[in-house]
Design a binder for these strands. Structure first.
Lengths: 221, 221, 221, 221
DNA sequence: ACTTAAACGAGACGGTACGTCGAGTCTTACC
DNA sequence: GGTAAGACTCGACGTACCGTCTCGTTTAAGT
């Protein structure tokens, strides 16, 4: 049931059974709070430790870097959200996947709009950007970031599109992972790089253009 | 016509007329070399100064941060490339814009493939990622980064698409900036976040899907 | 008995119980060595730290300035000398005070000669001058310098003179601290300001003149 | 015959005939003002130049260090004082020497008291201490300091004492330079090292003790 | 009066050290 | 053995001045 695998130990793996749950949570809380208040670069390990009422060594024992702390803090939030959602709905959305009402266009617009709303959540913004930036700059970190945080979200889209393809709503020769990028990447870039406004109208246009094409002429051949 | 005003002075603006061109170039070279060799985070202002054979104050006098140095180094490269290109071709590509042979699909594939090749250029990689990461994390920096480096490149796409629209190749009601994202953002995200392979086949698929849509059914209404 | 209070803390006083004795001695040694080798002004905190194999912060944690380090280095030497002397002689000189053979003139000549020899000790010269100079220039520092280093030495003279007065060797109305200056200040000035040769003959003359006066005529009244 | 030679040039001796008198005075004024306001160590060459409205190079051209500037500023003050005094009195004091009324004791008390008053002049204090401190720490500088500033003042005492000796007021075998120290050095040390109060009563006692001795017994032999 | 070369103000430059901050390691005392 | 606390070594930060080096601009001498 519980996670007994050690993560990122330094010398001799610490005994995670004796780990202080209290400190772990305090560290997550302190890290997220500080990043929200003073920004990621000015958030220091020392600052997190002091705010959490924890020794520095306790952080270094269990994590390899500030970025790792932040990522696990995020994963922890996800987990809690999932648990909370599970209480409300018998079968949580994040487990089932994206809604499938049979109307692909409507479903996609709905989900993209929701994604945009989530990206614009101010509590979410600062730490999420920090995490993304770390991933851009640091290949090694990116790998963990992608597999543990980013991909699970993207796969929901891929799955929904694959389902649509099987239902005959999407052309058979289309690669679902590429198709997924047509919807998701523009959102990602507008969020990451401020290349334009990120609103519901944008989501709707993306869905229309991607589904039916922008060309005024039929495909060659 | 172009911007000759001095930028980013500290206390009492230094006299840019007396600025040492020699030092400026040495600093760009040192910064790019170090970022390539040891990575952006381990590249320090002190390291750049030492490598460039320059006093630290000379860097702090003209730039506000490591990121600013890097950005201007990039702009400087762009300028030099433009100058070099101008010698070869009477009318440089970057001024004219993207190629317009009349065949939109072919043109787009060509340009996207070239963009991908450029993104994968190993000399380009490390500093460009550093710059992008800095932009993701730091809104203030992002603004300059976007207007001075990112947007000029994106606008070439927008312009080409607008031309296609005027030529009747793209539906009239399509927003060219949104259309542009269908091609460019997937590349951006795959490069920034390693969400999938970034190759010529990918570029081709993107163009096909975006131009003609992925839907197996006609648009509603 | 001795001074166990912590001194000169910066922000939140560091815990002197956990202080590294090893580093403290290394810092004293490095400071004295550097001052001897390259002189006081060219001796830097960074240099001391590097030579002592110590972080700069360790110096800044426990001392407020280069001068304070030097003074404590001196006090440390004094302490060690006292300890060493205590091993040789059951009752150390510095505790007993100046010799009192009953012959004031001889005693004073002996002690002044010894003082001159000590002042001319080459190991002693550079750091002692630096300390004195710092005291001349800086009133705040002077206070500590005087009470902790200078006065204890001077008081030995005052005490000896007071004893002589009680023995009837010195006129009753003479102020011993002023009398002390007649012997000590000329030495001090010749050492500090090079106003003349500083040798045993000088000491002898001082004693004779001060004890019996330079006037060829009797006192008025 | 007179000294028109340039002093302390750097590379090729500057032409002192073309020297700007205006700048020279401005530099003296700025140096003394700054030392009075913020203290000697925090007074910088750059600060003096800025305050004097002068280029740094103008200082480096004519002086070798901050201390040299200060010393010449002092000599300049002396000169001006001498000139001012010369206007009042036909034969200036500093040229004639100390007063010689025939009563040695009274003369010495008068002059020592005047010296003490001068030492305690607040305008005089900060720069004079700085100069003295520099002399203590730096042998090379000390030499100039002594010959040009200190000794001329001390010689007045020596001369007066020699005159007294010739008049039969002081024993024939007494060395006047040593005798001089009995009066002057205690003042110097109390001023330099704060070893006790420096007032008129102290001056009086010094004169009495030095003239007639502190011993209660006659000289041996 | 005109020419010309040096001194001048200004300040950018390559450097060194400052005093501070934080990283990551290590030690001590507690539980 | 994990923990809170914090001293330690190390290295970079951004600042302040150093002393040197151009730059024009006065300015005084010598034509």
């Amino acid at each position: 049931m519980s996670d007994t695998s050690n993560r990122a130990p330094k010398k001799t793996a610490p005994d995670s059974a004796r780990r202080s749950e209290r400190s772990r949570r305090a560290i997550y809380d302190a890290a997220l709070a500080l990043i929200g208040e003073i920004g990621y670069p000015r958030t220091t390990i020392e600052g997190i430790a002091a705010r959490a009422g924890v020794g520095k060594q306790t952080i270094y024992r269990w994590w390899g870097s500030k970025a790792e702390v932040l990522m696990e803090a995020f994963l922890d939030i996800n987990e809690q959200n999932a648990r909370t959602a599970a209480e409300k709905y018998p079968v949580p959305v994040t487990t089932t996947g994206l809604p499938d009402t049979g109307d692909l266009e409507t479903d996609l617009k709905l989900v993209l709009r929701a994604t945009i709303d989530e990206l614009k959540d101010p509590r979410f913004e600062a730490p999420a950007r920090a995490l993304a930036a770390e991933g851009v700059a640091n290949h090694e970190f990116a790998e963990e970031f992608i597999t543990r945080l980013l991909m699970p979200g993207l796969d929901l889209y891929t799955d929904r599109l694959r389902a649509a393809q099987e239902a005959g709503d999407i052309r058979a020769e289309v690669d679902p992972t590429v198709a997924r990028d047509l919807f998701v990447s523009p959102l990602a870039q507008r969020w990451l790089q401020y290349t334009g406004p990120l609103d519901h109208a944008y989501a709707d246009k993306l869905v229309e253009y991607a589904l039916y094409g922008i060309s005024a002429r039929p495909r060659k051949q």
